[in-house]
Design a protein around this nucleic acid. Sequence first.
DNA 1: GCGAGCAGCGTACCT
DNA 2: ACAGGTACGCTGCTCGCG
Length: 814
Amino acid sequence: MAISRKRAFFIDAGYTVRNGKTYVTLVLKGKKTVKRYYQYDPYFYVEAPVSRKDDLLQARGVKKSGEIVMPVRVEVAERKIGLETKKMLKLFCREPSHVPAIKAAIPFPCYEYNIPFSRRFIFDMGLTPLSVVHYEREKRQIKRISGVTQEDPRLSVMSFDIETYNPQGAPREEKDPVIMISYCGKKKGVITYKKGAQGQDFVETLKGEERMLERFCEIVSEEDPDVLVGYNSANFDLPYLNTRANALGMRLYLGRFGGQMKEVKKGLINGVQIGGRVHFDLYPAVKFFGFIGIIKTQKFTLDAVAEDVLKQKKVKIKKEEIWQTWDSGDIGKLCEYSLVDAELTSALASRFLPLEAELSGVAKMPLFDTTLSTSGQLVENLLMFHATERGEIIPSRPGGDAIMERVNAPIQGAFVKLPEPGIYENVAVLDFRGLYPSIIVSYNIDPGTLIEDEMRGGRGDGAGAAPGGAPGKPESEGRFVSPTGARFSKSATGLIPFVLNYLIDKRMELKKRLKTLEKAGDEYVRIEARSHALKILANSFYGYMGYARSRWYSRPCAESVTAWGRKHIMETIASAEGKGFSVLYSDTDSVFLLYKSKQDVLDFMNEINKSLPEKMELELEGFYPRGVFVSKKGGGERGAKKKYALLGEDGRIKIRGFELVRRDWSSVAKDTQRKVLEAILKEGSKEKAVKIIREIVADLQDGKVPLERLAISTQLNKDPTRYEIVSPELYAAKKMIAAGLVAEKGTVISYVVGKAGKSISEKAMPLELAKDYDADYYINNQVLPAVMKIMKELGYDEYSMKFGGKQKSLDNFF
DNA sequence: GCGAGCAGCGTACCT
DNA sequence: ACAGGTACGCTGCTCGCG
């Protein structure tokens, strides 16, 4: 008879060691939120003869502390490795920290010795974070519920933000107090300890800093959120609060079930764990979403991101004025602004938490870890989960030498067709839906299905004619042969194609379901987010295969993916040209065609699709009445790749690569370029374009343009002391540092090119300190280069823009 | 001495 | 710290020329 089991959502996992035994801890949200302990021994695999079983038990590992540790038991287990199944020895240890020590003492190949332990448990139990599980207190009595739809628990969320006293610019945490804390969850408010906020019922005034910190802990405990959200809270708010608490001789407790605050490092990202809750720092999440292109902000400050994502601009107090406002005693405004920060943080969390939660569920990684992960780590985690399920050994991480070797031998990537510069009418864009994922699935590309060369030594590097048979002749049945010559078995689906196929199918299913749902409902938001999570994961597999630190790195596989990609796109181009289309441009998975009839394009697309493997599909991206391609700066008549503008049938302009989408160009240049493109694409009016340019040139000459519109923003990707060369942004950064402003690795420097100085670097002044601008620079190095690329296609030269001379031929283009 | 041309560094973008 | 392909600004150097 089955024992009674309780149902709950699994929201976080960790482990603890007590009395020499290891327990996995799970935070489970049911009727009540509980923490449960499951005794579970860490282990790893040893590839050694079964007869050596007893010897292995005698292995003596030495920990860094000098302590001698030994395994607790050994089992025989069958595991697949490559195409073979092998008997392995599964060696159990008392504690996770014993694993590397014991592994080091074993003279046989070892596997799976560095899998984070609570993840190991998730893989072995087949759990999905944030899904429903049955549980009991111990004895591994936790099971996923099969057949139950995976739903998110309604995670309760509270955001917070602190204000600090900062008379010296940046606050000094040992001395400068926290003066205010705002929070926003079921309840929202501000706590502080100075009277001065009148008629603001959301403000609670305490006796002093210490009492305020205590009160904050109380509020968190009363509200008891599952998720505590901050913006850059791992690097600023939480460490600051902690230091202040220490300085005041008190203890800050924000966790649950006695869970402590702990700094964690995931790769290069710093996180702070709050035991029992999920601490969600939006900053790394926003960086991640920026990296994969979901959001596009110039700066990564709370204000900039909120404005970009929420489309609402808030008037805010300047950071450097906070202390003055505090000292003035009139803190009403400060309270308001502080609350706005907590509200914005909360609004951003509502926007991003659903996606993070779905990424967590899809990648089988606890939510907290997910918020700190790169897409490579998500893919790796998911592959480890499925490898475990399929009984496959998880490959080890590469060593430093292997990493170096991989980095130094990059893999040939995509094909990009050189466009012919010009202005065109009736452009159709077709693209392959999920090109690389569909190639991996279609051709079963996986390190495990790769057939090693029996005849030729070394790795196939793809050079030369197709090996292993007459050129052009298909290989024997049962294998796919890539354009590089690599061969992949058809007999069993590889791990990566298997997982990818699952993700792709699941996403198709969700897309169908989405159509039946009402938009903006909870269900819609969740399914949409899940579909998005599946897409993000699926698109990351190819990169992961060619990633130097990948456990599943395979040069022949990654090369085959791109080689097949090039083959398909080039065949599509050739076929289109054969049908009489002009192919204007192509990048990786897209073709831009000039068409006379839309039906021709659709017919062509359908014909291509008939010839493709089932999982591959060419889609219509859109029809565009007009489009512009420009020539390269120094390249004479040669077209620039990755730069174009298309006017959609809905009147919207799709712009790629132009200066106006780049943050390292001034607004004045970008706005002018945008207006010129609009005038030409929408109205077909080159006269208007000319007028726009002459006006702005005149304004610049007259000194009428405000400095903010002249700022050029560039991120410092290194410590300012580590640059080999001088550059305007570096000079501006140095001027900032001299003035007591922050300019360090990661800072986005905004500078204006001023009048004083010889080189541009010398003239660069940080926007904060800029007083004037060099009109010639902005005319000749910003506005004109940006617009002349386009005007050149209309037959204008630079001189005529500046001085109103005559235009050349091509006058009546339209 | 000076401008043109180029290499190298660095950033940001496209798929 | 997921991949490669690409444009282009600025600096600092070489080179040819006068």
